[in-house]
Simulated assay, not measured.
Amino acid sequence: MLIVLLQSLQFLLIIMVAYLFKKIKILKATDGIVLQKIILNLTLPATIVVGFNAVTVEPILFIMISLGLLSNIGLVMIGGFIWRKKDAPDQSLMMFSQAGYNIGNFTIPFVQGFFPAAIPYIGSFDMGNALMIFGGTPLIVDKLTHQQRSNNNLFRTFIGLFRSPSFTTYIIMFSLALTGVVLPENVLSVFQLFSSGNAFLAMFMVGLYLDIQIDLESLQKVVKLLLTRYTLGIGLALVFYFFLPLPDIVRLSLVLLALAPIGTVATINIITYGTERSLSSFLASVSIIISLILMTLALVFIL
């Protein structure tokens, strides 16, 4: 328990230091773009390689991919139903704020220090999650809100996923695992060198992007969105942990995923579908802080 609390406090410290650097103008929020490119193209793929190496492909990994898809579909539909009487931008806002998990930039860095063995399960879930946030969810939002903002179909969405280095790395490592190929230690050590900086860079980027300025009307809307998200998330976490006949580490991974913050792509889609950037940035920032607290509490109670 002490290790979990200490690790979470360290993450919070990194976020606060980055935010302080931004406020005193040592760095700018736009510097987070550089960190994001380093993370997405280098440290996160390296972390995935280290986590997936020597993994035995089991049916449970395919179950995780399916759960990543189904949980997103279910939550986006629930979001659309809850605000079904709102106008299209608000209904879209609710739908995007419920579905989609920030896994690459938050959940994987969070767990890699505690449970590196959980990365294959979380990564498999992220494959289903990515298919939805990069195309599936906008298609559902368009259908329910009678809009035509998404130009993708599912096939085009799947092909477009390979532009993401992390998704491509998932596929490569999954394929290697299927064929029984294991990277030798001298090769793996190179990836470990780069993956060791992933958690720090990810949390520092979060701090640079942190935005806590918002007007009262938008604040009230954000409270409703997050209250809905985390009520559903806690309910989903309880179902995952107490009702799924899966190994302990898998159920723990699912609990952390259910409590993960709103995905970065989801916040971009929120802006695309008519919500102000300031509200989207504040929503994402508060979501990260709440998720850090809830994921820490979940570990404390479960372990």
Rank of each mutant, 00 (worst) to 15 (best):
P261L: 10
I262F: 07
I262V: 14
G263Q: 01
G263T: 04
G263S: 06
G263H: 02
T264R: 14
T264Y: 13
V265S: 08
V265R: 04
V265Y: 06
A266S: 15
A266T: 11
T267D: 09
T267N: 12
T267A: 13
T267M: 14
T267E: 10
N269C: 13
I270V: 14
I270N: 01
I271Q: 15
I271W: 10
T272L: 12
G274M: 07
G274E: 06
G274P: 03
G274A: 08
G274H: 06
T275P: 05
E276Y: 10
E276N: 14
E276Q: 14
S278A: 14
S278K: 15
S278C: 11
S278H: 14
L279I: 03
L279T: 01
S280W: 04
S280A: 15
S280G: 09
S281E: 12
L283M: 12
L283K: 06
A284V: 08
A284L: 09
A284R: 06
S285W: 11
S285A: 14
S287W: 05
S287L: 09
I288Q: 04
I288Y: 05
I289Y: 07
I289L: 15
I290D: 01
I290A: 03
I290L: 08
I290V: 11
S291G: 12
S291K: 03
S291F: 04
L292A: 04
L294Y: 00
M295R: 03
L297Y: 06
L297K: 04
A298N: 00
L299S: 02
V300K: 09
V300C: 10
F301G: 09
F301D: 08
F301W: 14
